[in-house]
Simulated assay, not measured.
Amino acid sequence: MSNAILVRPAVEADYSHIARITVDAYMEAGYFPSADHPYMLQIQQVADRARTAPILVAERGGEVIGSVTLAVAGDEWADIAREDELEFRMLVVDPAVQRSGAGKAMVEAIIDRARSLEGVNAVALTTGGHWTSARRLYDKMGFGRMSERDWPVEGTDIMLVVYRLEL
């Protein structure tokens, strides 16, 4: 099996893998008590999400091992995107293969895509305040904290922190 990681647009055959990986990653992080939480149920509806937002997957050896959703300001899936930003959300890597380079490969693909979009001068994201491995990745890749843009998830004790990378 090749160790090379391919980042590509998601196709319908990927949706069940994306849903499983997303649940596994969020549950592993301890953010939700069960996969039945309303937000968890929403993000498992990958086909619905794919109708309104680009989704990329990381694949290694023909197996989907990660995914990420993209948005620009005004899109249904945009939480924080400003007019000049490409936002990415729900970047997840299967917990069984985390630290394999899949997260970094997806972020590099996002940065390349952002550079190709007219009017986009930055990449922005939110991540959990306690997701230290994700935050280390964003720090290493040159993203800067935008603490003035941090925000709480309504109805939870989750604080999301914002990062931005100028292109």
Rank of each mutant, 00 (worst) to 15 (best):
I5H: 03
M90S: 07
P38R: 06
K140V: 14
A29D: 05
F143I: 08
G155W: 03
V7T: 11
G129P: 00
Y15M: 06
L165K: 15
A71S: 12
R149D: 11
F88E: 12
D139R: 03
G129M: 13
Q44I: 01
M159H: 03
D79P: 02
A122H: 09
I158W: 11
Q42K: 14
A73C: 15
I80H: 06
P152D: 13
R60T: 14
A19N: 14
D48T: 13
D157F: 01
R164V: 07
L167K: 04
P54S: 08
S67L: 02
E108K: 01
E118A: 14
R82T: 13
V162H: 14
H17L: 12
M40D: 15
V23R: 06
A25T: 09
V97W: 00
A53R: 10
G129Y: 08
F88D: 09
R136G: 13
W151V: 09
A50P: 01
P9G: 13
M1R: 07
F32G: 07
V107E: 00
V161Q: 14
R115M: 03
R89A: 05
L125Y: 02
D24G: 08
S116R: 15
G119F: 06
L137P: 09
Y138A: 10
E12P: 03
V123F: 02
E108S: 07
D14M: 05
I158L: 11
A50C: 04
D24K: 11
V46W: 00
R136I: 07
V120R: 02
L86S: 10
R149I: 01
G103D: 08
P38I: 04
M1N: 12
S16R: 12
E166M: 07
T126V: 07
S147L: 11
W131I: 12
D94K: 05
L70P: 14
E166S: 14
S2L: 05
D157L: 04
V93F: 12
R113S: 07
M141L: 08
V68S: 04
D84N: 08
R164T: 05
D157Q: 15
P38S: 01
I5S: 04
G101P: 14
A29F: 02
Q98C: 05
A102T: 01
G74K: 07
V161G: 01
D84F: 13
L70V: 03
V153N: 03
Q42D: 11
V64D: 00
S16M: 03
E12Q: 06
A35R: 14
L41Q: 15
M146A: 13
A71R: 02
D112Q: 10
P95C: 13
D150W: 00
A13L: 07
G119W: 10
Y163C: 04
T156L: 07
I21C: 04
I110G: 03
I111A: 10
A71D: 10
L91Y: 09
V68P: 02
G103V: 06
G30K: 01
D48R: 09
V92Q: 07
G142K: 06
D36P: 00
V161A: 01
A4W: 01
G103A: 06
I18L: 02
G30C: 04
Q42R: 10
R60I: 07
Y26Q: 10
L41R: 12
